[in-house]
């Protein structure tokens, strides 16, 4: 159970790993926006190349990146099938019984798959693969801190995230222990109807909740003992400093977005 990792963080020391988490969040949002700017085959090609460049820069093995795409394989397949069979256009390619496949349908399908892949890979390279969950939480807290003016509980939200990240592995471990204990007493979780199986989970959930509340109570006391009094007047050990690399990366992504618009405008090609 000690092998459990949260998110998909892949330890490393690449340029992308070292960027300020605040910048990485902004960069990821900009990059996703850029992916929606693509209008023709050349700008899509540029987008695909940019994703490959990001993977290379992050030095994360391609096999790990591909594995990250596996969960959305079904969604992609679904999109492809829907687009190919349902899009109506002008260039008819295949006509067979009720099935009509148009060139436009195939192009839309390809562009959709490309866009989804790039969004997943892009956010992965900027955020999930190269940023630890705690750095991510920290980045969110600091990016949103101006909203404190409107009495938004930004610090509290970040604290909750941190505690959740801290306790998820513990609770998983505990669930396994309780399940083992119930199995030892003859509990059966794997046979019977859906309803029976759901019912079998009750003897797991009840002790799990009881223990979670007890933990929460003890943690609250321990935090009070360590002088926790909310975000007010709190300092941080690690101060985030934006470096030249952060600003350069930001400029690069903005330029990339701008160049996509220009490519759409001036490069000839199939409009998708």
């Amino acid at each position: 159970m000690s092998s459990i990792t949260l998110g998909q963080y892949f330890p490393g020391n690449s340029l992308l790993h070292r960027l300020d988490p605040r910048f990485k969040i902004v960069l990821a949002i900009l990059y996703i926006t850029a992916s929606f700017l693509c209008k023709n085959i050349w700008s899509f090609a540029a987008l695909a190349i940019s994703a490959v460049v990001l993977v290379l820069v992050s030095r994360i093995p391609v096999s790990i990146v591909l594995r990250g795409l596996r969960p959305i394989l079904f969604i992609m397949l679904f999109t492809v099938v829907l687009n190919i069979f349902l899009t109506r256009g002008e260039t008819l390619l295949v006509e067979f019984w009720v099935i009509r496949i148009y060139l436009e349908g195939i192009l839309t399908a390809v562009s959709m798959v490309l866009r989804i892949t790039v969004i997943i890979v892009g956010t992965g390279m900027f955020l999930t693969y190269t940023t630890t969950p705690i750095a991510l939480t920290d980045g969110i807290e600091r990016l949103l801190s101006p909203l404190k003016v409107f009495h938004l509980p930004v610090h509290e939200f970040a604290m909750m995230m941190t505690i959740a990240l801290r306790f998820i592995p513990l609770l998983i471990e505990e669930t396994e222990k309780i399940m083992a204990a119930q199995k030892a007493r003859g509990a059966d979780f794997s046979t019977g109807s859906l309803l029976q199986r759901a019912k079998a989970l009750i003897p797991i959930l009840v002790p799990l909740f009881v223990s979670a509340f007890r933990r929460a109570d003890e943690l609250a006391v321990a935090m009070e003992c360590r002088c926790y009094r909310g975000g007010e007047g709190r300092t941080r050990m690690t101060v985030l400093h934006a470096t030249a690399a952060d600003w350069l990366m930001l400029a690069a992504v903005i330029l990339f977005g701008a160049s996509l618009v220009l490519i759409n405008r001036f490069a000839p090609g199939f409009t998708l």
Binding site: T132, I134, T162, R166, E218, L219, A222
Partner: peptide, 9 residues
Amino acid sequence: PDNQLVATV
């Protein structure tokens, strides 16, 4: 010890 550590690092 588990119930008094707050951070993940």
